[in-house]
């Protein structure tokens, strides 16, 4: 059977890492057709066509898809759904917005944040902030799902799939875009970064967070934050790692001044190497850290920056 995969396209550009990881997750389920949607999507479609495991690319280019609003994007996917048993997407905020809407329009129960594909109808997903992994089997004919990308390796390059333009679907006209306020940054994307430096409540203030950023820049790393740090206003929400933020699995995760609440661990415990710097030696973060340094972060971090 066939899979329709909503590729992650942001402002006309393919988010290759997230898309290629989702391809890895679903390619065993059937022939994968990637769908690129946007006001400009041709370049993204050409890029998606090179992902190994992608058999075909559909390109829906129309001004109505410029910000991938949920209502027109879901309507488009539903219009293309015939002939596909699986409709999937990497679990980005865009897909989390769109895919449950798609599922309901198809009278299917969405399966979100899939971390394991057992067979065509059986999937593993985390529940309770990752404190349990549940295997569920769906009775729905069409399976609509989002893929937690941090658990899959990205598919390689080298494919040369055909790209086909598809017509836009009717726009329900229920919403319109007003503005984006993206924090412009030269740092790597959190969800695909090889190294992440995260700060928690222990960092103490927005000003002190600059120190976390300096350490990150020294390592060419992305910057993350715990929910406590975000709630305290030290860091923006799009840096949040955890149950309600982003789920990451870098080669190296450095947690600074983070106690290690289960909600935070849910977002980073699959990292390859975890370093914790905290002055409280009882902090739960040390139970998952490969290397723990019990120290005042205001001494340790500047020293690290100097010596690295």
């Amino acid at each position: 059977m066939a899979v329709l995969l909503l590729a992650e396209v942001t402002n006309g550009e393919l988010q290759r890492d997230a898309t290629a990881k989702a391809v890895t997750a679903v390619k065993g389920l059937g022939e994968v057709t990637a769908l690129c949607v946007g006001a400009h999507a041709k370049a993204a479609a050409e890029a998606a066509a090179t992902i190994e495991g992608v058999a075909k690319v559909l390109c829906a280019e129309d001004p109505r898809y410029s910000h991938r609003l949920a209502e027109p994007t879901a309507a488009l996917i539903v219009s293309l759904a015939d002939g596909y048993e699986h409709i999937a997407a990497p679990a980005t905020t865009d897909a989390k917005n769109v895919m449950p809407r798609v599922a309901a329009l198809l009278d299917a129960m969405v399966i979100t944040d899939v971390v394991g594909v057992i067979d065509a109808a059986t999937f593993e997903r985390p529940i309770y902030a990752g404190n349990a992994i549940q295997t569920v089997r769906t009775a729905d004919a069409k399976k609509v799902m989002t893929i937690r990308t941090s658990t899959f390796e990205a598919a390689g390059d080298g494919a040369a799939a055909s790209v086909e333009a598809v017509a836009a679907a009717a726009d329900p006209g229920l919403s319109s875009w007003v503005a984006d306020s993206a924090a412009a940054s030269d740092r790597p994307e959190l969800t695909s970064a090889g190294v992440i430096v995260s700060g928690g409540r222990g960092v103490g203030s927005e000003d002190n967070f600059r120190m976390i950023e300096s350490l990150a820049d020294k390592l060419g790393a992305a910057v993350g934050a715990s929910r406590a740090a975000v709630d305290s206003g030290y860091a923006p929400n799009d840096w949040q790692v955890g149950q309600t933020g982003k789920v990451v699995a870098p080669e190296l995760y450095i947690a600074v001044g983070i106690s290690g609440a289960i909600q935070h661990l849910a977002g980073m415990k699959d990292s390859k190497v975890i370093v914790a710097i905290n002055k409280d030696e009882e902090a739960p973060i040390f139970q998952v850290a490969d290397y723990g340094l019990v120290a005042d972060l205001f001494d340790a971090v500047p020293e690290l920056i100097k010596k690295l």
Partner: peptide
């Protein structure tokens, strides 16, 4: 959806404490 099974996630082992930067 029917639940096939629910398991605890793979536990991560605590590593070591280092004494200095």
């Amino acid at each position: 959806l029917s639940v096939v099974k629910t398991v605890e996630p793979r536990e991560r082992q605590a590593g070591i404490k280092v004494g200095s930067v």
